[in-house]
Design a protein around this nucleic acid. Sequence first.
DNA 1: GTCTATAAGACGATAGAC
DNA 2: GTCTATCGTCTTATAGAC
Lengths: 197, 197
Amino acid sequence: MTVRIIGAMSLSRKDQIKQTAAKMFRKRGYQATSMRDIAKELGMEAPSLYNHIRSKQQILSELLLMVADEFTQGMAKVKRSVGPESAQLEQLVKLHVDITMEHSDAVSLLTGEWVHLEKEVAEEFIKKRDAYEQDFRTILKASIEKGHLEKVDVELALFSILSTLRWLYSWCGRNPEVNRRKLEKQMVKILLPRKKS
Amino acid sequence: MTVRIIGAMSLSRKDQIKQTAAKMFRKRGYQATSMRDIAKELGMEAPSLYNHIRSKQQILSELLLMVADEFTQGMAKVKRSVGPESAQLEQLVKLHVDITMEHSDAVSLLTGEWVHLEKEVAEEFIKKRDAYEQDFRTILKASIEKGHLEKVDVELALFSILSTLRWLYSWCGRNPEVNRRKLEKQMVKILLPRKKS
DNA sequence: GTCTATAAGACGATAGAC
DNA sequence: GTCTATCGTCTTATAGAC
């Protein structure tokens, strides 16, 4: 049951479990984290977890699909926005910074732990990831073709940008005092080198 | 026993095991790959593996330390080279491309699977990784200060460059026909934007 | 909603025959 | 050097008392 307290939000037991699991999956990996480990961290016994979740797999899939949906919805909003593609690219960098700072543990699972999803959920996840990358590619390509960005190989530039954005969570982990605005600004400068005219 | 055949190199049984394990660790992760899985892939029974290796952990640590040493030695060679730092940076990009194409499965383990190393080996690995990054930082910093590169935040630029180079293995996995020279050239262009004068 | 007890099986690794 | 048999431990998950 969800309980609200004035000035703060008390998480439901299920959300506590998911949050704790995310932190442990991030540190040790999904397979190396047992239900006993998660329970112990929460001060309870492993079987008690099953009163709140159906399986260990459900924890992972809900975490990953939640973040994937955040990215999908963010991309939809960017696509609806008016203005040049170069401005949309800046919005995408900000989207990554925002989601990463909001859900850094869950975001950290996007890179390596999704392989432990069972077949059906894995397919759903990959579908969403590929659609996101395709949208990103379209915007980047248009921006380069219109001469807003340096002329480089689109695929390799996309790869480089996404590689950096995917690893942002480790940057935020090492620099917890990071200022969101400054980070966004520097990231845009490094990842989206404007064409000199 | 190692056997040489004219025109080809026959791997020792131990190297066969390491190579097969690397491929499976890459695809499913260290923890999710059992000794039985590895043995089956090689057409043998799990206990037979122990005639060639001492433990599953030994396979992982030898793979990771081998690649780490490749990077350490490559960096030493770059540091010994004469010429401007901007040229040294280009050599580093080429170093990553070379090692990644030569040992792509083992390289893929550098990003996520090193966390499964046992304490002592993990510390050795981290020490080497940190030393490598420190050398990279020194060269990058000098290059920016001397005005060879665009003026950007050194730490964030380093983070971005290493993020992309670390993920190169997945690029090579998806583009197997990739031309090494072209890849190096494009990487330099994207990662090391020269200052316009 | 939490517990204890336990099922049913996978794991890494060893012993010892051949 | 490979096998079969097996040890001891850990795993996810369930049953049922409270």
